[in-house]
């Protein structure tokens, strides 16, 4: 188990290396320079040369990548081209906001999905079940930015109940958090419900009933324990979905997090920021998946982790 964990942790490094390599290669293949943003007033060649030297863009590509890697190892992510600020500063400033948004959304989606999925499976084909299926279908089907539009129209523009620009007060957090959580909540509800339905019709549940156990004991002690294992395995992908969802939500609601910064850097081809943020996201996703795999190994006795 320990050996397996260590191996998995070490595997993070090559994975991140490839992510960085792909991102770097793609960014280098991009035509156009981040400096010619204003077509009416192109910067002089001398200025461009100076900037190129400053950002090390005059060196061969391989050397640039090596240099970049070396810097990253020292937690130096370079300087944003369009903002003229260290990337580490930009990320450091946005990170708490993004982390708060993401965690709130993750907890909210679990808090909604687990009870909803369980109840709708136990009350299959009742109004509760149909309502949760409806919610799950909407949430997994309609893209978050479209749902955001409807929310803003109803609660922001129409009822004027909630602000929809900026971040800070609890009121500001409600819409971004709810909408960001919606997709994952819907997805997890579906999985929980399906997994419960699968578990309740297993033979061992009948065995448990044949022992004379109370229905609550059968559900909690026998069904849930099995049904939640598949759910745990998709919390990783759900977390990844939250991360990518946060770009869009932060952009729509002008939330000052890394997601909005990321989209800005993508549009502006600000690749020091693109590189650093991509790497950061990849890191979180790898760690989330690793955690889930290890938890899975602990939850399911049939999985012999490390063998």
């Amino acid at each position: 188990m320990l050996q397996y964990t260590i191996r998995r942790i070490l595997l993070i490094i090559p994975t991140l290396f490839f992510v960085a390599l792909i991102t770097f290669t793609l960014a280098k293949m991009a035509p156009g320079s981040p400096f010619d943003k204003n077509p009416d007033k192109p910067p002089s060649q001398a200025t461009i040369d100076r900037w190129n030297r400053y950002y090390g863009l005059d060196k061969p590509v391989a050397e640039q990548f090596a240099m970049w890697l070396g810097n990253v190892a020292r937690f130096d992510f370079g300087v944003s081209i369009t903002r003229q600020r260290p990337v580490a500063d930009i990320i450091g400033q946005g990170f708490p906001t993004t982390a708060q948004l993401g965690l709130q959304a993750l907890f909210l989606s679990l808090a909604v999905a687990l009870p909803l999925g369980i109840v709708s499976a136990l009350r299959q084909n009742t109004i509760v079940d149909y309502a949760s299926l409806f919610f799950a279908t909407i949430g997994t089907t309609i893209p978050s930015f479209v749902i955001a539009i409807f929310f803003i129209y109803i609660f922001g523009v129409g009822l004027r109940l909630l602000p929809f620009v900026g971040w800070g007060t609890p009121q500001h957090m409600i819409m971004p958090t709810v909408i960001l959580s919606l997709g994952s909540a819907a997805f997890l509800t579906r999985i929980t419900r399906a997994s419960m339905l699968e578990a309740v019709r297993q033979d061992y549940v009948r065995t448990a009933r044949s022992k004379g156990l109370r229905e609550q004991v059968v559900i909690v002690g026998h069904v849930l324990k099995n049904a939640l294992i598949p759910v745990a395995t998709v919390v990783g992908p759900a977390a990844a979905a939250l991360i990518t969802g946060s770009f869009i939500i932060e952009t729509i609601f002008s939330v000052p997090g890394i997601g909005r910064e990321y989209i800005r850097s993508i549009v502006a081809l600000d690749y020091p920021v693109i590189m650093a943020t991509t790497l950061l996201y990849a890191f979180f996703i790898v760690v989330a998946n690793l955690t889930v795999d290890l938890v899975y190994g602990m939850l399911d006795p049939r999985i012999k982790v490390g063998k």
Binding site: D203, T207, G212, R214, K225, N226, P301, R302
Partner: peptide
């Protein structure tokens, strides 16, 4: 429920699926 497992017990066909795996 007081009778099940207590006065009447059942052995099922497939022992591979009739025991709770976790």
């Amino acid at each position: 429920r007081g009778i099940r497992g207590n006065n009447v017990a059942m052995i099922f066909q497939d022992p591979m699926t009739s025991l709770n795996p976790v």
